[in-house]
Amino acid sequence: MKTNIRAITLAVSDLERSLRFYRDGLGLFSPGIIGTEFVRDEQHPGGSVAMFTLDNGLILSLYSRTDLAMDAGIALDRVAGSPISLGFFADSRADVDHILQQAVQAGGAIVRPPVIRPWGIYAGYFADPDGHLWEAMYFLNGIPE
């Protein structure tokens, strides 16, 4: 069995707003919202989704909170907030600062300004408009193997 994580789906309250945040604000490539022909009804979730294929092949998907909860068969409150953080690996300290600035300009919020951590990274946190927590980080001694 292969153990590859190839997709991460974020539950969002406003798909258009989140698409603008990640595509127009952070510069991630997406063809836009697809699957709009699959409309939610009483028994089936809708299919509208925005996808971003990242440089390493990972797919970041944005999906309506309501549709994700319905698709997974769970309560809506289970797909809110941010019990995890996701990470951007940056090529320099300046890139970390730039990512955080982009996030704010796109409608996100700085959660923790960047600092040098004792374990050798320069990093700061931001939240997207739905509160998903992201860490932008630069490894001062190179990315660990």
Score class of each variant (00 low, 15 high):
S48R: 00
R78T: 07
A103K: 11
Q102G: 08
I99A: 12
D55Y: 06
D77N: 15
F88G: 07
L68F: 09
L68W: 07
Q43Y: 06
G107Y: 09
L58H: 02
S85E: 10
H44S: 04
V104P: 14
L54R: 06
A75K: 06
V111Y: 01
S64F: 04
D91Q: 13
A69N: 05
D71N: 07
A94F: 11
A72G: 01
L76H: 14
V96F: 09
S85T: 00
D91H: 10
T66R: 05
A94I: 13
V104E: 15
A90G: 10
D95L: 10
E42G: 01
D67K: 09
Q43R: 12
A75L: 06
T66K: 07
L54H: 03
A50T: 01
L76V: 13
L86R: 01
G73Y: 04
I74C: 13
H98T: 15
S64E: 04
V96Q: 11
Y63W: 10
P83E: 08
H98M: 12
Q102L: 14
A106W: 05
L58W: 05
G108D: 09
R78M: 14
S85G: 02
L58A: 07
Q105C: 13
P45C: 00
S85R: 06
Q105A: 15
G81F: 12
F88W: 15
A72P: 10
N56Y: 01
S61H: 01
V111R: 02
A106D: 12
I74P: 02
D67Y: 04
A80H: 11
Q43P: 08
A50P: 03
I84P: 04
M51E: 05
L76G: 01
A109G: 10
M51Q: 03
S85F: 10
A103Q: 14
L54T: 00
Q105N: 15
